[in-house]
Simulated scan of single mutants.
Amino acid sequence: MASHRKLRAAAVVCAAVAVAGPASAAAWAAPPAAAGAAVQQAAPRAPSPSPDPFADLTPDEIADRAITATQSATSLRMTGRVVADGEPLDIDFAVNERDECTGQMKIGGGTAELRRVDDFTYMKGDEAFWRVSMASQGMPEAQIDATIELVKGRWLKIAPGQAGASDLSGVCDLEGLLASLDEDRAEPGALARGPDGEVDGTPVATLVKKDTGKETTATAEGTAEPESAEPETTEPETTTVSVSQEGKPYILKMDKTGGEEPGAMTLSEFDEPVDVTVPPADETVDLSKLDQGTNA
């Protein structure tokens, strides 16, 4: 059986991966105002409903309705790619209002499955996922090999209070993810309505929030360059959010291009059941028991 140090290292890896994933997902679960800024990705043209359900609304009013509708969802699915600390992160999760979820994330060529049910979190990664995750934490090769041998082909069962439990549960916190929609709203008039489009066959209105590039003359040491130095310019960013024009005005897609965190996230399967299966006991490594020195 692995030592307490190795078991704790496995839990730390879970936490590190979770911090990169849920935080980014939460940032994407926001309208242009909450996301801060990004670059518009052209939406596909599609016939607009007649009459236009948002014809008499300002972009800010459309955003308010979209936020209210999306926050009312009892479940949804998030699919897409975000950037976490410069590393592309692909996620696909179904989440419900009971903080249950099931799905997977991909980073650095590796894949991990995540499930949460009955307040327990289960995580199962392939070797590539664990290796890139642990290497990013600066773990020595020998420790990485030992930990991978421990978790190979098995689910880590993380109990409430275990290291990494709160971070990993964040991706399954539907209320928390949607709460970010109310944060950092843009000033009135900062949003613009873009061309109508289509997301998976559903006609949508688009809302656009643009930002200009930022200039800096600071050096790596934090001191100012001489006035003659050429400023470093960050590419302008725009965020485009697609709002359903049929049924409830759910937010169906967020697109970012430009800047440091480009990506796209699609929301779907609103209010549909989320079925989460508890992994078989003989395929799990129970960290809460192992930390106490007992068998898994």
Rank of each mutant, 00 (worst) to 15 (best):
T212E: 13
T257V: 12
C101K: 05
G258A: 13
Q41W: 11
G21V: 11
T238Y: 03
D145S: 04
R81I: 14
L181P: 00
S288D: 12
A38S: 15
A112S: 14
K6T: 15
A112W: 00
E61I: 02
E61Y: 00
A43Y: 02
E141L: 08
D282F: 10
I144F: 03
E187N: 06
E237K: 14
P44W: 11
Q292L: 13
A26W: 06
S3F: 05
E97W: 02
G36A: 12
E175Q: 10
A42Y: 02
T74V: 02
P31T: 15
D99W: 00
G86T: 03
A94T: 10
L7F: 14
A69N: 07
G21L: 09
T240S: 11
P32S: 15
E198H: 04
M254I: 14
G189L: 09
T121L: 08
D119L: 09
A35D: 05
D271I: 07
Q292G: 02
V19S: 11
F129V: 11
E97T: 06
A186N: 08
E230P: 06
M134T: 04
A135V: 06
D92P: 08
A33R: 09
A16R: 12
K6H: 15
P140Y: 02
L191P: 04
E61D: 13
A73S: 10
L57G: 02
T74M: 01
A16P: 01
L156G: 10
G164T: 03
L267K: 03
A229V: 06
D118S: 09
K253Y: 06
A186L: 11
V171D: 01
P88G: 05
D275H: 07
W130H: 13
A190N: 11
V208Y: 02
C172N: 03
D255R: 06
A20F: 03
F54C: 09
T223S: 12
E272I: 03
